[in-house]
Design a binder for these strands. Structure first.
Lengths: 345, 345
DNA sequence: TTGAAAGCGCTAACAA
DNA sequence: TTGTTAGCGCTTTCAA
């Protein structure tokens, strides 16, 4: 057991008050006393009891991040990178990071209510915002500090960092059009997620702007996993005619698409071009390496966190709503549209 | 602001004590009072202040997980799945999960010291154990509850869950030998990590047992990332003669290896067979799908967590050291050894 | 420059 | 069955 303030005080024949102030660096402690206290505290291995500080200061010195887990197999490199960003920035600034997991649904708000009302955390980072996000409504109404990765449709003026998915997807479409593709399919994520809709809108608008017809039957929805990408691509490839290019809402789905294309005996980047979104580190090492829209996941994590902490410490950032322009990373999964359009299998 | 016990007590003309006991379900409260209290608490939206509970009970009701981050690009599906397992189990049992990040190195123990002495968490989950792990020594000496994913060389009798990596790697070797391979390379992870050494030992022993020569120059060490797998494979492929099969210490490296093989114009599963370890969900969707040693990451996360919580609650599990037998999942990245051994570039 | 005392919100021993 | 009281370890008035 580490020593408490009282023990340091006793050892030095001082009061707890003085020790506390000396350690906090208050100026109303004599330099000599301060040094003795600091010295002894170090020697005795003093570490403050956070629960007591927390209760007294009415501040947890912690932020929370609630992961929207879906299935038990939650194997998403996107999240590990985001957590690393959030965790490192929080740690750097002396905050703890509390992780909870709750699937979107009826029990979700209860989790948010507990997290906020219990005083466990001073602020929250939220992700995967939805078009009408009850979490944002709840937190805003209760004036609970939060920053989100992802904007939302509601007119509320909350702080967020978001990536311009419309623009990113447009880059993807235009890249394909330049390569001569006109039969382009799109695999969207769940339609209640803001970023899904934004990317999908970017797809439709870019197609229309370039006069390329959008076929409804080539827009399929899935759950952002490799498995979904794979099975949706199987559906696409069975169609007559079939698309010569597929844009997926994220890299994981795109990887699933590539697998399906190859299973069908087709060549990615030649028979079918594939583009993802995220640029997880695996994208560079898939086969073929995946052309994808890059978003800086790690630094979004640090950015969101530092914005939140700034708010918590009373100096809110000047820019409260930050839009990041993604860029396209062209690798080998995209290539010229096949001239010959004879359908196979 | 949610109400405090005092406000509920005032509203009902009861003492704080009675309200507290009623809510805690103590039997020495009349049924009628209990109901009134519970009812009013719900109506007023009462949520206990965890800092006060924490201070009073001397228990944080939280467990900590310290992620060994290496670089900023910490994009590892293994960890997101493990965190999901830990987080879900902790949440299910009413514990918070606190995540910290610290790279292995000089500052590491200080982080552990702060986490333990500050009372933030009641116990820790640790991973990536090392042969002589200072963290385990520190926690054991201080009698701080922890469970690790990974055993270690030290004779200490601490609780852990581990996967028999020696056995797993043997399965990989034997699979390759059955396919006729004799020129097998091995890419190991950092040699201070227990699991790296265990898997490497499994490789060497299995090779020797089957009378297949182990070449030192074909055992290369890397940092468990795709990038390392890729560059090490490039070195291997430049050798004369070169191996016909590569076993990597984890899936991420194996994926990097496959990329390198393909860049060289060789075919994975034909010219060069590749085996990984972990069976992250991507392994099934890589191209070709990766033959790998499966370990149940998610359920290891839940297992480790439930063991820890059992210890915290005073009923330690009977089995304190759990070994899991992994199994080989054969996909398409392995195939018969090429009959023809003419070397290329 | 230092110390005494109160209180953050809760639980628990003890008394009534 | 309920209430009084003390105290978890810290910070912060206020007084000396």
């Amino acid at each position: 057991m580490p020593p408490r303030l009282k023990e340091i005080a006793d050892a030095l024949n001082l009061s707890v008050t003085t020790v506390s102030r000396a350690l906090a660096g208050y100026p109303d402690v004599s330099e000599k006393t301060r040094q003795r206290v600091v010295q002894t505290a170090r020697e005795m291995g003093y570490v403050p009891n956070v629960a007591a500080q927390h209760l007294q200061r009415q501040k947890a010195n912690a932020i929370g991040f609630i992961i929207p887990t879906f299935g038990p197999r939650f194997s998403d490199p996107f999240f590990s990178e985001l957590i690393a960003g959030i965790g490192n920035e929080a740690g750097r600034r002396g905050y703890d990071l509390l992780i909870s997991t709750v699937p979107p649904g009826p029990r979700e708000l209860e989790t948010y209510r507990l997290q906020t009302y219990s005083g466990r955390v001073d602020g929250l980072v939220i992700v995967r915002t939805r078009l009408n996000d009850p979490r944002i409504a709840f937190l805003s109404e209760n004036d609970f500090p939060f920053v989100s990765f992802g904007s939302c449709n509601q007119p509320m003026d909350f702080p967020f960092v978001d990536v311009d998915g419309e623009y990113g997807t447009r880059l993807a479409v235009e890249h394909l059009i330049e390569l001569g593709h006109t039969r382009i399919a799109y695999l969207t994520g769940p339609r209640d997620l803001s970023f899904s809709i934004m990317r999908l809108r970017g797809f439709v608008e870019a197609m229309e702007r370039h006069g390329v017809p959008v076929r409804e039957e080539w827009i399929l929805e899935g759950g952002l996993t490799e498995g979904d990408g794979h099975s949706l691509a199987m559906q696409l490839l069975a169609m007559q005619p079939r698309p010569t290019a597929v844009i997926a809402a994220n890299d994981l789905m795109a990887i699933g698409v590539m697998g399906a294309v190859q299973e069908k005996g087709l060549e990615v980047g030649k028979d079918v071009s594939v583009i993802g979104f995220d640029d997880i580190s695996l994208a560079a090492y898939s086969h073929p390496p995946l052309t994808t829209v890059h978003q800086p996941i790690y630094s979004i994590g640090t950015k969101v966190t530092s914005m939140l902490i700034q708010i918590l410490e009373g100096n809110p950032p000047e820019e409260k709503q930050i839009w990041i322009k993604p860029h396209l990373v062209i690798r080998k999964s995209t290539g010229k549209a096949p001239g010959n359009t004879i359908e196979r299998g």
